[in-house]
Design a protein around this nucleic acid. Structure first.
Lengths: 197, 197
DNA sequence: CGTCTATTTGAATGTACTCAAAAGCGGTGG
DNA sequence: CCACCGCTTTTGAGTACATTCAAATAGACG
């Protein structure tokens, strides 16, 4: 992956919402630092303070918490062209409850908290960009809450397959179960019963 | 409630995140229209297209969906100093799945979608304001998803009492149960068992 | 005061979980 | 290239959490 491709995906992604002058682009890119991860490597570990927003240019990651019974709960999956971070820790600079782990060899661009603050100052269009981004993230969360509240485990699984087939095929089933709020054992039973019907 | 008080709460609310010149304030206020609601009156009905963001200056409302079995699921409560809308419908201008109903006599300020677009143009600081707002909304949703995924009904109820005692005391118990993703019958049992212990 | 709605109570049912163990699959080293 | 090891998925049985249905009681509003 050459330099061009390294930033190309993110610049395209940004261009879908705001227009930048070449100088602004240049400045934006100067704030980014690529980071490569092996499978199972952590981007953020619970207890650390999160300092970056991450944009994924290749690979697949998950964020999760570990509850008081040592059970992991997957919060999000993220693949190419998505962002991932622990916003709570990033904003409040408090120790993260969340861990972020690469499920595949991955490459991300990291944008530091302070650099982002400067970016807002120097290129206010990014206020708009992140407003739209957070707005959409909020919408997605809303849909997920609705799913969880008003559907059974089987229906949630079906809906996920429908909406995110690529991710369903890409991540281990046990993480999918966790994301959907059920045990891996139960998801396995669902899948096999479904075949039976 | 006189004119001063009508807009005072919102202007204070905005001032917590961005600073406005008197002219900008003036312009902002000119976009707002107060609307009074009786108990049980709808601010938005499922099927309608949502045209406004609403800021609540007095009262208490809930947003909810009705599923295919005619069961209602409460998405959000909102009281004074909070916003409420169906963002999905507002952004996509598609028929709303959500209804919004006043639980008490209430008064809101409505901000029309188009007016908001103009506001972004004329006073870009509002990009920042709504970025922060949506960011916080997203955080709150994240916490709620975590709660739902990793805690039992009893724990979710306890946590809600802890975090939003004022709302818990203010809304009918059956809506609280719905918000927490359980039946009113079960919530009632929880409360009484707890007393028994 | 009466009516309507919300909450409580009880019993039977169902959905999803835990525990335990077997089978499948993929990566690694001999 | 095959064999082994570790991790994931499957299978089965027993259990717990939460739901449904029905009916009684309590509260709120006109």
């Amino acid at each position: 992956m050459d330099q061009q491709d390294l930033y190309g995906l993110l610049l395209q992604h940004v261009a879908r919402h705001i227009q930048l002058t070449p100088e602004e682009q240049q400045y934006f890119v100067s704030l980014l630092k690529p980071r490569r991860l092996q499978r199972r490597q952590w981007l953020l570990q619970a207890g650390d303070i999160c300092r970056y927003e991450y944009f994924i240019i290749q690979g697949c990651l998950r964020s999760y918490i570990t509850d008081r019974n040592d059970v992991e709960h997957v919060l999000h999956f993220a693949v190419e062209d998505w962002w991932i971070t622990d916003l709570e820790s990033l904003l409040t600079q408090s120790p993260s409850q969340v861990s972020i782990e690469a499920l595949e060899p991955s490459c991300v661009l990291q944008l530091e908290r302070e650099a982002l603050q400067n970016l807002y100052q120097k290129v206010p269009a990014f206020e708009r960009f992140f407003r739209i981004l957070h707005q959409n993230a909020y919408l997605a969360q809303n849909r997920r809450i609705l799913q969880n509240i008003s559907h059974t485990a089987a229906e949630r699984y079906e809906a996920f397959l429908e909406r995110y087939p690529a991710i369903a095929a890409r991540v281990p089933q046990k993480y999918l179960a966790s994301y959907l709020g059920m045990t891996p054992v139960f998801l396995s039973q669902l899948r096999n019963h479904k075949a039976g019907k």
